[in-house]
Computed example of a mutant assay.
Amino acid sequence: MKHLFVINPTAGKTDRSHEIRAEIEELAREMGFPCEIILTRGPMDAADIVQRAAGQGDELRVYACGGDGTLNEAVNGAAGYPHVAVTQYPTGSGNDFIRIFGKDTSRFSDLRELVEGETAEFDLIDCNGRLCLNICSVGLDARIAAGMQSFKKLPFLSGRGAYALSTLYHVLRGISRPYEAEVDGRHFSGDFTMLVAASGRYYGGGMYVMPEAEPDDGRIEFLLVRKVTVLKVAEVIGDYKTGNYRRHPDLATHLTGKEMAILSREGRTAINIDGEVMMSREVRLSLSPRKIRFIFPRGARWESTFFADPI
């Protein structure tokens, strides 16, 4: 079995690639396993690296050393190869997908636990041809994420500051946008704040948006949040972030299914895919026939045991 460590040197607040490389090399010597270490150089580089390695046909374990974006790229490179398994060594700022493992999430920061870990087959969501392991969304959250990229370029502004400024900017410009949406043949039309498709439960740096989601149940959880007023946005978003969207049945519609199509009436719209941003007027989301073998620490479990507070 081969072990491939893909390091994103731009993940997190500082470049830890030298430190991570040293940790990997020390563990490989101690445990006696062959490994290859490659640093990414740009967007989707991790996907290309993993796909090339997967194409060699050897049993392969891939360790995405970075955040949710690095993990997403590794998954896109490995999907469809039954001899390849993927995991995350979390060095990014969000690391949201692995939060489904609850109290065992911290164990992903132990490389030995991952090398000795077990695997399970997880579902993937196809979003306009790009695969998603965790959550896809369209709406206010995706626009804020897209805006952050511009605000980050401002001097002396931290990542948190860029997020706050982008949030203020997009709230003032209008919280909702007009969309057409169809979930498994059921049609919805009007102004929406957010449209979400989830296989995982957390995104956006720890927002617990979809308590019902399971990564291996062969279905997608959809959440459609209709127009929210400025006066009510803080309350609704607060409940949304803690999995309590059910407190707003007049605004939030939860559905379970296999596919959703979205059409933006205002032209191209931002799409969040595991923390990465794409732009398109039409969005097609579906349960992918491809799966991913995911590595996790032995004995760790992801089944949901928490339910949102009753209404």
Score class of each variant (00 low, 15 high):
5 F>K: 03
6 V>S: 11
8 N>K: 14
9 P>R: 00
11 A>M: 02
12 G>W: 09
13 K>R: 15
16 R>F: 05
17 S>W: 13
19 E>L: 11
23 E>A: 14
25 E>Y: 05
29 R>V: 12
29 R>W: 08
33 F>S: 00
35 C>L: 06
39 L>H: 07
42 G>E: 06
43 P>R: 12
46 A>M: 05
48 D>N: 13
48 D>F: 10
48 D>I: 08
50 V>T: 02
50 V>S: 03
51 Q>W: 10
52 R>E: 12
52 R>Y: 01
54 A>N: 02
54 A>W: 06
59 E>M: 14
60 L>M: 11
63 Y>D: 00
65 C>T: 02
65 C>L: 06
68 D>F: 07
69 G>P: 08
69 G>I: 01
74 A>T: 09
75 V>M: 09
76 N>I: 03
81 Y>F: 15
89 Y>F: 15
90 P>F: 04
92 G>F: 10
95 N>R: 04
95 N>D: 02
95 N>I: 08
96 D>Y: 05
97 F>P: 12
98 I>V: 12
98 I>G: 00
105 T>N: 09
106 S>W: 06
112 R>I: 12
113 E>P: 00
114 L>N: 01
116 E>L: 13
116 E>D: 07
119 T>P: 06
120 A>R: 13
120 A>I: 06
123 D>L: 06
129 G>W: 12
132 C>V: 06
133 L>F: 10
133 L>K: 12
134 N>P: 09
137 S>E: 13
143 R>G: 07
144 I>P: 03
146 A>L: 13
150 S>D: 14
153 K>V: 03
154 L>Q: 07
155 P>C: 07
156 F>G: 02
157 L>R: 10
160 R>W: 13
164 A>Y: 08
166 S>R: 02
166 S>Q: 04
171 V>G: 01
173 R>E: 14
174 G>Y: 06
177 R>P: 05
181 A>Q: 00
181 A>M: 06
183 V>H: 01
184 D>R: 07
185 G>I: 00
186 R>V: 15
187 H>R: 15
189 S>F: 09
193 T>E: 02
197 A>T: 01
198 A>H: 11
198 A>T: 07
201 R>W: 04
203 Y>H: 13
208 Y>Q: 10
215 P>F: 05
217 D>H: 11
218 G>H: 12
220 I>M: 05
224 L>M: 04
229 T>W: 05
236 V>W: 00
236 V>M: 14
237 I>F: 14
242 T>W: 09
242 T>L: 14
243 G>H: 03
246 R>F: 03
247 R>V: 03
249 P>N: 05
252 A>Y: 07
253 T>I: 15
254 H>M: 14
254 H>E: 10
256 T>Q: 15
259 E>C: 07
260 M>A: 06
266 E>G: 09
270 A>P: 09
272 N>T: 10
274 D>H: 10
275 G>A: 08
275 G>C: 10
276 E>A: 10
276 E>S: 00
276 E>G: 07
279 M>E: 15
279 M>W: 13
279 M>I: 10
280 S>I: 13
280 S>M: 05
282 E>S: 14
285 L>I: 15
288 S>K: 01
290 R>V: 02
292 I>R: 00
296 F>Y: 15
298 R>S: 10
299 G>C: 03
301 R>L: 12
302 W>Y: 14
307 F>R: 15
307 F>L: 12
307 F>S: 13
